[in-house]
């Protein structure tokens, strides 16, 4: 009992419990069947135990995703807490997989679990990394695309945390626009 108490009290609780999901593209299965919950955690120490146990994103095969979402939110547009929202999207050039991808993803995870966005952290749903041959993508998902103040604050802080230059522009896209797009490009609702 003392050991259990020590284990609990020595760890640093996070504001939220988070769920890590893994997606592996198997064309013989449905999209949902390819999505698996890996585990949930709610302390800083348990986050690191998980992070050091799983593959770096850059080592995953094309077609795989990791998603980190607040407990209770599924990593898909259809979830009630996502469907009115959108994402700040970071698109990477192919060569950045070897130079920046893992650093950007870890920074994204730390922004989420550390509640970096202050009161606007309430607006955060999660983050997704897509490993793709044509170029990897990282995105932070927020719950309400119409919440201009929250969305733009999150975008500015996120860009700064990634260390992106002022010359780089990142865009926020509403999921509703992504879901109904006709071409390959979704219009940006906001940019920073």
């Amino acid at each position: 009992r003392e050991a259990l108490a020590a284990e609990i009290w020595d760890k640093h609780p996070l504001q939220n419990r988070w769920a890590l999901w893994f997606f592996k593209n198997d064309k013989s299965k449905t999209w949902q069947a390819n999505l698996r919950l890996v585990t949930k955690f709610s302390t800083a120490e348990d986050f690191w135990a998980l992070y050091s146990h799983i593959q770096l994103a850059s080592k995953l095969t094309s077609g795989c995703d990791y998603s980190l979402f607040k407990d209770g939110i599924e990593p898909m547009w259809e979830d009630n807490r996502n469907k009115r929202g959108g994402r700040w999207l970071i698109t990477l050039a192919k060569q950045q997989r070897h130079t920046e991808l893992d650093r950007f993803w870890l920074e994204t995870l730390l922004c989420l679990i550390g509640e970096t966005f202050g009161p606007y952290s309430e607006d955060i749903c999660g983050a997704v990394i897509n490993i793709r041959a044509k170029g990897d993508k990282i995105a932070i998902w927020t719950r309400e695309a119409e919440n201009r103040d929250g969305v733009t604050h999150i975008g500015r802080v996120y860009k700064e945390r990634l260390g992106l230059s002022h010359k780089v522009v990142i865009g926020y896209q509403a999921h509703a626009d992504t879901a109904t797009k006709s071409g390959s490009l979704t219009k940006n609702k906001f940019v920073v």
């Binding site: 920074e107 509640e115 202050g118 945390r161």
Partner: peptide, 18 residues
Amino acid sequence: GTRIIYDRKFLMECRNSP
């Protein structure tokens, strides 16, 4: 209520603690 906020430095230190 209060929000538990951890900066980058603190979280990185948690990584290295035994």
